[in-house]
């Protein structure tokens, strides 16, 4: 029941964010969307993902978008097309077909939390049984991110570093140097 309500709120937030003409309101609704999504992750027992969603999606992304908004106009330009054009019909068709394919794809998926699901039979038992002895940390997620997949995390950190450098190169004003 609560899951259904949360998903309903997600859809409402998504539609509201698209329909909103005031961009600041749209950004705030996106923040709410992320916060609800964080609750959904918690309901799925993915607390690390929920934490990231809450801090990045609801927190820092909202602030960075507001910062970007401070350089542009607060409202949308021009009149929104109210009549249904041929292009919007084509877009609707593409969205419907893609959605149908995605739903068709979920039919074969194992149930949530199924211990016999392929994802739970491959490396997961090894992480659960041995990660504490092999890495010395108690949280599986941290063990996987920092030790078993240490190269990936180094790469991610480098990506963030690169993003920072790019912003400095592109947006920093010369007079400040």
């Amino acid at each position: 029941m609560i899951d259904f309500l949360l998903l309903l709120f997600l859809v409402v937030c998504a539609i509201a964010a698209i329909r909103m003409k005031d961009l600041l309101s749209a950004i705030m609704i996106l923040g709410v969307y992320s916060l609800i999504m964080a609750v959904v992750w918690t309901r799925l027992n993915a607390v690390d993902v929920a934490f990231t969603e809450a801090s990045v999606g609801a927190g820092i992304t909202t602030m960075l978008l507001i910062a970007a908004l401070s350089r542009t106009k607060r409202g949308e330009e021009g009149n929104r097309q109210s009549s249904i054009s041929r292009r919007s019909l084509a877009a609707l068709l593409v969205v419907l077909v893609t959605g149908a394919v995605l739903i068709y794809g979920t039919i074969d998926m194992p149930n949530f939390g199924d211990p016999n699901a392929p994802a739970n039979l491959h490396v997961a038992p090894r992480y659960i049984e041995k990660s504490h002895d092999e890495t010395g940390v108690e949280n599986f997620v941290t063990a996987v991110l920092a030790s078993y997949r240490g190269y990936d995390t180094l790469g991610e950190t480098t990506v963030i570093f690169t993003a920072g450098i790019c912003v400095i190169l592109l947006l920093r004003r010369k007079s400040e140097q």
């Binding site: 910062a67 970007a68 010395g136 920092a146 180094l154």
Partner: peptide
Amino acid sequence: IYGIEIGVGITVAAVMITLFFET
């Protein structure tokens, strides 16, 4: 692992601050 977590934290915090200051 503790050391690399601190490293990740420093970079992420500094980049977020930079993004906001520059944007």
